[in-house]
Design a protein around this nucleic acid. Structure first.
Length: 490
RNA sequence: CGGGGUGUAGCGCAGUUGGUAGCGCACUACGUUCGGGACGUAGGGGCCGUGUGUUCGAGUCACAUCACCCCGACCA
């Protein structure tokens, strides 16, 4: 497996760039660090949105929408929050353009300077909590469980397609609760929703854990995360869920009257996943032929390619393709017939593989004669000829099999690239191979940053589900309650 | 923000000592093909990132500037 990855390219990010460009998922736009998501790439995001949205509704959440622009003063209300985001904000300073005096085009009208600058949201905690102040008065208004689908902008020093673009699409949940316990429960509940989504739908196994103080979200008391392993052994933070304590309630003065008549600040959470998940999908499953989409995420689960010579045969094949498509649709499979008559079948096969369509069916005169159809699966690239009779059950079962099989492949990969290490010497050596390293750490930021400096590895999380065995910090020898996950990350 | 690299047709690139711009793919038309990325013939498409210099003359030289990519710093 590891060998396979190296064969793809010496430089993984280069491979990734190539793949994305070749897969026609996105291209760089003229705007710095932004992305153009092409329709078939966006369709993947739409699938994810729909599934996640259903999961949010099932856990009692509602969608809402808040402004794109945030008054500068809002951002400075919470000290840690501004500290964390100040360096990467796009700022709106003017509200009007005018024609240049020398006719050279349009310039910013200096007379149209805003009294207070507006920040393009890097995240919406501040503007939402400014609104929540007016929505929450009594314990009867709680819990307040809102989610927003939106775009945000972070002026990162260095962008990376899908993984760290300046503008990205995401979902951010913002909840308010009467008690700390309830908010903490919500934080973990949503972490579990994310983990279920990643594993069950995206077929990406994830580790659930808590971030160390230095990796914590700006303004949070605790940051929970799901961490995934990419095929080059690097870690990718795939989603976060934050317990915000009363930090934002205090910053925006959001109090409620409890049953007992006493005033108290509300407790908060926020949680989000972004278009980075598309990057995770690409890097977790793809191979040299392009994308490999899990059937549950694939906008098109099966494509039917008619094989024909000349227009006569093409017309003749069409109804047969339709018949099979209808059968599949009745079995709940999303199907597309690729009836483009200007492309050869071989070209279409390659293109569908590039785009990751899980199952391909080819139907030619030979099949019509024999009552068969050729079925190919994207993940293993294997194909077989089966009777048309019962094709729908066959494909439905195949989709399940593909879904499970790519999850298991990713899980096996992660397991074979996760090891326990007890000495710092061994750590330094093993971290060079990538993967997750479970090691003991003394819990101090000093040790953590020393390890980062010397090895470029960070603590991805303090895992929640691992068996906790005490030990000694591999660097300082001080006591440690449990192993934590180290990795190099994106 | 530092180091390195690249900007020439939709995409990928070539362009010599400065002399009026080329290849492959894609595109258009016609024909032959068609069960794993077809071929022939004929076409269309360019302010050479942008600006200012040097020069009789700049894709080519100089300076500036902008954008992108890679490596750092940085980053939920």
């Amino acid at each position: 497996m590891a060998k396979e990855v190296t064969s793809r390219a010496e430089n993984y990010s280069q491979w990734y760039q190539d793949l994305v460009i070749k897969a026609n998922l996105a291209e760089n736009s003229a705007v710095r660090g932004c992305m153009v998501i092409k329709p078939h790439g966006y369709a993947i995001w739409e699938r994810m949105q729909r599934i996640l949205d259903d999961m949010f509704k099932a856990t009692g959440h509602q969608n809402a929408y808040f402004p794109l622009l945030i008054p500068k003063s809002f951002l400075s209300r919470e000290a840690d929050h501004v500290e964390g985001f100040a360096k990467e904000c796009a700022v709106v300073t003017h509200y009007r353009l005018k024609n240049a005096d020398d006719g050279s085009g349009v310039v910013v009208d200096p007379d149209a300077r805003l009294e207070e600058e507006l920040i393009i949201r890097p995240t919406s905690e501040t503007i939402i909590w400014n609104t929540y102040k007016n929505w929450i008065h009594s314990y009867r208004d709680l819990p307040l469980l809102c989610n927003q689908w939106a775009n945000v902008m972070r002026w990162e020093m260095r962008t990376r397609l899908f993984l760290r673009t300046a503008e990205f699409l995401w979902q951010e949940g913002h909840t308010a609760h009467a008690t700390a316990e309830e908010a903490q429960e919500e934080t973990v509940r949503m972490l579990n929703v994310y983990a279920e989504f990643a594993e069950k739908y995206m077929a990406i196994p994830v580790l659930k854990g808590v971030k160390t103080a230095s990796e914590r979200f700006a303004g949070a008391v605790d940051t929970y995360c799901i961490e995934a392993m990419m095929q080059d052994g690097k870690a990718l933070q795939a989603g976060t869920s934050h317990f915000l304590g009363q930090n934002f309630a205090k910053a925006f003065d959001v109090k409620f009257t409890g049953k007992n008549g006493e005033l108290d600040y509300v407790w908060a959470t926020s949680w989000g996943v972004s278009t980075r998940l598309i990057g995770a999908l690409i890097m977790a499953h793809s191979d040299d032929n392009g994308l490999v989409l899990p059937p549950k995420i694939a906008p098109v689960q099966a494509v039917i390619v008619p094989i024909f010579k000349g227009d006569d045969e093409f017309q003749q094949m069409k109804p047969h393709c339709q018949t099979i498509a209808n059968k599949l649709r009745q079995a709940g499979v999303t199907v597309k017939i690729d009836d483009r008559d200007n492309l050869r079948s071989g070209f279409k096969f390659a293109e569908h593989e590039l785009q990751g369509i899980p199952v391909r069916l080819a139907l030619g005169p030979r099949d019509v004669q024999n009552g068969t159809v050729e079925v190919a699966r994207r993940d293993t690239l294997s194909k077989e000829t089966i009777p048309q009779e019962g094709v729908e059950q066959h494909v439905a079962a195949l989709l399940d099999d593909i879904q499970n099989s790519i999850y298991n492949k990713a899980l096996q990969f992660r397991e074979s690239n996760t090891l326990c290490v007890d000495t710092y010497e061994e750590f330094k050596q093993k971290i060079e191979n990538g993967g997750f390293i479970m090691a003991h750490w003394d819990g101090t930021a000093e040790t953590e940053s020393r390890i980062k400096e010397e090895t470029k590895a960070t603590i991805r999380c303090i895992p929640l589900d691992e068996v906790k065995t005490a030990g000694k910090c591999m660097v300082t020898g001080k006591p440690s309650a449990q192993r934590v996950v180290f990795a190099r990350n994106y």
